[in-house]
């Protein structure tokens, strides 16, 4: 860990201005990922700009969208009555992540930008194209039990580790981003990137931008909803595979449906083919199985993570089944 300067700011504008002043500075929110990365020598910012006092913690409904400030803590979002009532999928996903202590300080923005948990990325003595482009990918022929089966590239097979983001992808969220001059919105599905030839880039946020909030359209997906997370222990572990499943029944048929998977790709993995298949169908095991099959098209294992080729479709079926049983 190197010496760094610590600055605190109270407005989005000044935060961005401070960032622009010095390329080697970084925002710090909950710090639960950034500080670990600094301790491991993966990141070495010279300035930390503390944005925790920027007033971006509101959780509220405006029109037909629910707005969640980028600095709202993971637990504040998960426990908020509005979220529990209208976006239970998001609440469940957040509850499945990390530990109570971490969720109390981790923020929405930080959660979106957390780095992969690939062990090679965290160890500066190992090859890793994401940390140091051109050094090779340690995981492809190494320990890749936790790694991706969709959208990989020969450069990187890491997964995005967030639970919250899987729900946000399923819920068609929008990300509101600001730079010094203006604000813009990105569809959540376009926020994170696949590794391709640029494994060092996790997302499409520019270096001079601040995440302001996410907006989620209010929907009818508040009953048949389940976030299933399969992991190596019952709590406080990253997903081997996770599934966000939400559907709305009408006349005994699935009217709307959202499905996304975590632990399988470099970004939250939306299961569009499976969604399209299930729309208008009955919610039964045969259909769930068929959907799971469609969802797995194009999946590829790398040895130690081959089990995900079996676990992922099973988890889809189980998540849909559990969503169906919700009264």
């Amino acid at each position: 860990m190197i010496n760094f300067q610590y600055l605190r700011t109270t407005s989005a504008k000044s935060a961005i201005a401070l960032l622009l002043k010095d390329k080697r500075s970084k925002f710090i929110a909950g710090g639960t990922n950034l500080i670990d990365l600094m301790k491991r020598g993966v990141l070495a910012p010279e300035k930390l700009i503390d944005i925790n006092h920027v007033p971006l913690k509101q959780i509220q409904q405006i029109g037909d969208k629910i707005h969640i400030g980028a600095l709202a803590s993971n637990s504040a979002v998960a426990d908020h009555p509005l979220i529990k009532e209208k976006l239970p999928l998001l609440s469940m996903a957040l509850q499945a992540g990390a530990s109570a202590q971490l969720r109390n300080v981790a923020t929405v923005g930080g959660n979106m930008l957390q780095k992969t948990r690939c062990g090679y990325f965290y160890d500066t003595e190992m090859p890793c194209n994401k940390r140091q482009p051109g050094t090779g990918c340690g995981a492809i022929e190494g320990f890749n039990r936790m790694h991706a089966i969709f959208g990989t590239s020969p450069q990187c097979i890491a997964v995005h580790p967030s639970d919250m983001c899987i729900a946000l992808a399923a819920l068609d969220a929008l990300v509101v981003i600001a730079n010094a001059k203006t604000e813009r919105k990105i569809a959540f599905a376009d926020f994170h990137r696949l590794p391709g030839d640029t494994p060092h880039l996790d997302h499409n946020l520019k270096p001079d931008e601040l995440i302001i909030r996410v907006e989620i359209p209010v929907n009818a997906l508040n009953k048949n909803v389940h976030y299933l997370k399969i992991r190596d222990r019952a709590s406080y572990a990253f997903a081997l595979v996770s599934v966000a499943a939400a559907f709305e029944m009408r006349d005994n048929k699935i009217n709307t449906i959202r499905l996304a998977m975590g632990g399988v790709a470099h970004k939250p993995w939306r299961l569009t083919a499976a969604e399209n298949f299930l729309k208008g169908k009955e919610a039964n095991v045969q259909n769930f199985e068929e959907a799971a099959k469609l969802a797995m098209i194009g999946a590829k294992g790398f040895g130690e993570n081959d089990f995900k080729l079996k676990l992922a479709p099973n988890a889809i079926i189980e998540a849909l089944t559990l969503a169906k049983t919700k009264a």
Binding site: R117, G119, Y120, R233, S235, A237, F238
Partner: peptide, 18 residues
């Protein structure tokens, strides 16, 4: 490499209360 991959408490899993 002869190096540990999961040498931390996030990745080396001891049982939790749950």
């Amino acid at each position: 490499f002869g190096r540990y991959i999961n040498n931390n408490f996030a990745d080396y899993h001891v049982p939790v209360h749950a």
